[in-house]
Design a protein around this nucleic acid. Structure first.
Lengths: 229, 229
DNA sequence: TTTCAACTGTCAATAAAACGACAATCTTTT
DNA sequence: AAAAGATTGTCGTTTTATTGACAGTTGAAA
């Protein structure tokens, strides 16, 4: 491994993997790194979407709020991932609200400068195309889930995704840092807090998962998979 | 207006508006025009997605089916619009199923040839970018609707979209050709046929819309808008 | 013209999940 | 350490929408 460059913070982004140091250098010039504390907003709905973001460290959630104040979570962002990339596709305003769930380190690049950088580095085009394709796929899957699955199936699907994205396998158990409260899971799966609680409790009684306020363990992913067919 | 070219069929696609005749010519060379009859499938799920489609005339619906046979409609395609464009973003298989709802005329272009054409005509890049952005927006709006709105609000939202996309204003009435059966509306709005019927009937009783088997008229769009806030 | 299949309209029964309420527990602040 | 606030757990109760069943219509096919 090469010596630690001052651009260390760009190296780990999936999107930039394998770029040579010259290009990372020029990327470094147009990017700004910023710390966010827990619960600090990153951008708001109706703001002009003029930047694209990369999460280096921490955790971010993207939400939408209905007229009457109900919240839904559009997505969670893990380290190494891009967010706010709609700015790349669209001139308009943001439609979602981004907030740091934990102390986070976030890299910001101005939309126009990023577009210019991409046009000078065509290898990125393909990656971005794939990224966008993946987003569309995720959204259509989410729609499908809302249409075809009932509340407990949606919650179980979510647990599986959580295990895959954020879990650490230890023997036959998968440990997940429980960074979401029940209300968050409810906002992610389009059901009520009480329903989330009862589904989780039920799974715990059946020894398929275990959880309390400080841990979440999936004992038996196989069985969970059976529930959602 | 210029004399009718043999490329008349390409002229009206939103995506190609304003391309000069030389470019249309070369587009003509890589595109194939084909007639589809009512209920004829255009592509299936799990097929490799090797082409992109443009609807010249008729009407197409894009659907997904759950494991247990329930259907949802992912979207309706109107003349002048693209579909199957995921092939442009993704190497994989189709995830949806496209079927002609009416006798239709459809232009097909091979994904790779289309990509080549786009790379030689950079003005298209921006339009495609916008198109993709719009798709993402539509999907997130759909998710939002499923999460925040109840069945009758979803049906009413759908009626408004239908009026906007397919309606002809005549005085204060908006006429829509009723090309959808109740089951289709149900598949579009994620509720049951019976619920669709009862919501529509209720709106008819209140004289906000009128419909029977051969027509659908929206008398009072204002009031519909009030229902959905 | 008759027949058949698909679609519409309606209703009662059932099921799913939201909602409201409140106690218990944990966390943070003072 | 006490108080306040947030989160979880557990209830009945109520709402919403699905389901199934069946009769009435309509359009197409024979």
């Amino acid at each position: 491994m090469a010596e630690k460059s001052k651009l260390w913070y760009l190296e780990n982004f999936n999107l930039f993997k394998g770029l040579n140091s010259e290009k990372l250098e020029s990327l470094g010039k147009i990017s700004k790194m910023k710390d966010f504390e827990k619960n600090q907003p990153i951008y708001f709905a109706h703001e002009p979407s003029s930047s694209i973001f990369f999460l280096k460290k921490g955790r971010v959630k993207l939400t939408r709020t209905s007229n009457d104040g109900k919240e839904m979570i559009l997505g969670l962002v893990n380290p190494g991932e891009v967010f706010g990339e709609m700015s790349f596709l669209d001139e308009g305003e943001r439609t979602d609200f981004a907030i740091a769930m934990e102390p986070s380190l976030i890299c910001t690049i101005n939309k126009e400068e990023f577009k210019k950088f991409v046009s000078e580095n065509n290898e990125l085009n393909l990656r971005i195309t794939k990224l966008i394709g993946l987003r569309i796929k995720k959204y259509t899957e989410r729609i499908e889930e809302l249409v075809f699955k009932d509340a407990s199936q949606r919650i179980i699907s979510f647990l599986i995704r959580l295990a895959d994205d954020n879990g650490k396998q230890l023997g036959s158990d998968i440990f997940v840092k429980p960074f979401l409260k029940h209300q968050d899971i409810a906002d992610l799966t389009a059901c009520s807090r009480q329903t989330v609680n009862s589904v989780l409790t039920d799974l715990r009684e059946k020894k398929i998962i275990h959880f309390d306020r400080r841990k979440l363990i999936i004992h038996d992913k196989e069985t969970l998979l059976k529930y959602i067919g």
